[in-house]
Design a protein around this nucleic acid. Sequence first.
RNA 1: GCGGAGGUAGCCAAGUGGUCAAAGGCGGCAGCCUCAAGAGCUGCUCUCGCAGGAGUUCGAGGGUUCAAGUCCCUUCCUCCGCACCA
Length: 952
Amino acid sequence: MKERYNPHEIEEKWQRKWAEARIFQPEPDNREKYFITIPYPYLNGNLHAGHTRTFTIGDVVARYKRMLGFNVLFPMGFHATGTPIVGLVEQILKKDPETMRVYNKLHEIPLEILDSIKSSEQIVEYFSREAEAAMKSIGFSIDWRRKFTTTDPHYKKFITWQFNFLHAKNKVITGAHPVRWCPNDENPVEDHDILKGEDATIIDYTLIKFKLNGDILPCATLRPETVFGVTNLWVNPGILHVRLRVNNENWIVSKEAYEKLKFTDKKVELQGEVSGEELIGKKVSNPVTGSHVYILPASFVNPDNGSGIVMSVPAHAPYDYLALRDLKGADLTRYGITRDVSRIPLISLIKVSEYGKYPAMDAVIELKIKDQNDPKAIEATKLVYRREFHGGVLTETTGKYAGWSVAKIKDVLIHDLISQGIADVFYEFSEQPVICRCGATCVIKMVENQWFLNYSEPSWKEQVCKCLSGMQIIPPEIRVDFENKIDWLKDKACARRKGLGTRLPWDKQWMIESLGDSTIYMTYYIIANYLDKFEPDQLRDEFFDYCLMGNGDPEIVAGSTGINIDIVKSIRSDFEYWYPVDLRSSGKDLIPNHLLFFLFHHVAIFPEKYWPRAIAINGFVSLEGQKMSKSKGPLLTLKSAVKEFGADVTRLYILSTAEHIQDADWRTADVDATRKQVERFQKIACDILNSGNNNGELKLIDRWILSKLQHRIKETTDALNKIQTRRAVQNAFYLLMNDMKWYERRGGGVARKQVLDTWIKLIAPFMPHLCEEIGEEIGGNFISLSSYPRVNASLIDKNAELAEEVTSNTLKDIEEIIRLIRLKPKRVVIYTSPSWKREVLKRAIIMKKDKSLDMKNLMSALISDKTMKIHAKEIPKFAQKVIADIQGMDDELMNSLLDMDFNEISALNEAKQFLGREVECNIEIYSADSPEYDPQGKSRFALPMRPAIYIE
RNA sequence: GCGGAGGUAGCCAAGUGGUCAAAGGCGGCAGCCUCAAGAGCUGCUCUCGCAGGAGUUCGAGGGUUCAAGUCCCUUCCUCCGCACCA
């Protein structure tokens, strides 16, 4: 092996050898299988540091499991369906300057290649080739025979089967759903199409239909329960209203509301105009309570919001309360109203602990709000809403709903009102305006006859919950995220007009949405191994029914598809061997979407024994503290990281800098440091390999390093079992490195080769190339295929560990004293604990184990011991200290101290030369029982495990 | 608003109620090596201390306990997701 670390040479060599030996191309055999998958990358850019982290975690787990003896299947494919690739081609064809810059500079694509791209096929082709090369260059142990792309014709057959299956099971239904819509482009707008109002969400208001003779005045509200407390309606006298024919009803709304209604699923026809003035003073009937209330004027009514007509609940809505109060003494005779409307009695319907009967009034008083134009009115509204929503309970006013909490009644009530025909849903943006890139104001449009995956169906959710509860979720604390998201998930539109993908088999104008086509594709890796055996057209539904579901008869399937029957049977038996997925490991961004759908589709399609076993989640990667961005930068590609630092360093670094869902920060300075550590590792290995045969008897320090090694193995395997890569690297690499440094410094040598042999296996999942290179020198088969180290309990040597602890602590103490007295020592004398102190300690430990340790018991035991008598004066103080020390000891340490037959003097004597070398002075060691030389009586400070020191 | 994560030394970051003044790394300082620089190696790196000691720390404020970075309550701050988009 070369002295100098040349990662690229080593890495290419071993990648070639692995490929030639086909060691990562598993077939079913009699071993236990382990099927690990990582979500395939989407091909609208090059793989970056985020992929590097997620995929490397997968590779480390794959390699670890393989070394544990599992037959590991770790496949990879490419995702290309959906709209982004189509959009990218358009931009490239347009030579959009920003796109060209981003893809040339950030994604590192040469301009001549960018210029040559003319189609989405070329994009897919280019990025899939690049991705595969990148993944090979970092040494992933992927079975590349099984790769595919989601736009492959074979794959489309698989998706077609899946959707036919789901459709037959009533998992795909039709419906309508609201989308952000640009009336100018006549298209739904996505986030990146939005100029202003990107954060706006779609809120569903309830539209309550108040009746005015034959007309309907719909009032939009977020608080439909307050309909029981309506005292009047509000109309802004200054705005124009319109009369509409909506389905079979006559509506009056603001002109602005009419513009919005046009895009809903209602049939809307304009019939005429109505001024606000005209409406005021009329009486409408409340469709819920039947009461008749006035329409009154209010300036706060915004025609842009809702229907432009507002129902007034002054007991619970500060604006309503204020507007009513503002009318005090106003002359409304021109509207035909002669009474003082500000004296209309409030109607309370929610009881909440923070307020009295009329929360809106209390809030207005509390915040000292002047009138409806006071900006603080908004604050009061939010406050009352929040308190009533969370703590409010409906009163008798609400009839059969009395006693319900506000938070719980909402959905029930909306459902009731709509089914009675007295309410409707009305969608509105949470922020206005929302402006499209083209400059037009966006609206909310109901897309009708849309296909949905019926995720909201309770029995489906129940199945998913059952699946989840049987799964291992790593790290465990994110299980609650999954539970919440399952609960929150609604029906999902699963078809689109644009983009790449597979057509909905029964309604070909639609393309299957790309999150839906990537839910059970792990099964396809098993089929992908046989793709050269058949044409796409042969993959009829009955083929998948049999191979994936076990339904049907293989002979009939072979007959109808023309596929060889042995192949059909073989795929089925492969499926039975490899499935289910043992681990799906992914970035945390996929929790609320892909991973959820992954579970939903598995439970919908497969029997329980094929449900996924585990999910592991990891965080993102930032660059020098900055968030990475594919479209804006900064960006670090996998390719360039490997080119600059090598595969092993990149792998080691990115997995050692953060754990689980924490984000990892890529810092070049730290990566450089990691490279130095790897170089040092290589140098240590070289030294060991070149040091010749140093057989010999194991000394204390040799037993120490072997014992330490066992702890590192234990910690590393424990960490890897929990996919704690950072902890694993700490133990398998850095801490063991420090152990080895101490070992070398202490003059150890005999156990070096034994340690190295284990060490390269321990760290091999992280830096497989260098470990293979070192392993080759030692001899034997691929390290990648060797057995992972296991703890050898017989090598754990507590005596050696304690002895070494005494030695290093003593050295630290000596050095500290030297530093303090600032003298070059001429003579260093060490006194080990007198035997009586050791005896006290032992007795105390025994009492502690009996739970009988206290000062009284200990003292009475000691006083009755004749041999202790001569130390009677010192005993109480020492005993007190011992008791305090023991409080914090764990059982293991106490046992070692008890069982320890090790003699501090002999341990220190073994380290005598070493200590002398370190402090450059001769060392003398005595027992405090009988020190030969003790001019200052320092020996009386000697304690067990803590010798006294005298320096001249 | 809802849901989730988190605040630890100059920085990143570990931390199961008791060997925690707190792992590991980075940065910094000193020594060795070298003609020198770099690399490498060794030590130090909260404050004070010419004998191994003492004092004050884990966002802030309370509390439980013989014992709290770790448990409980209150409070402040930061980050992430909320969809039809991969």
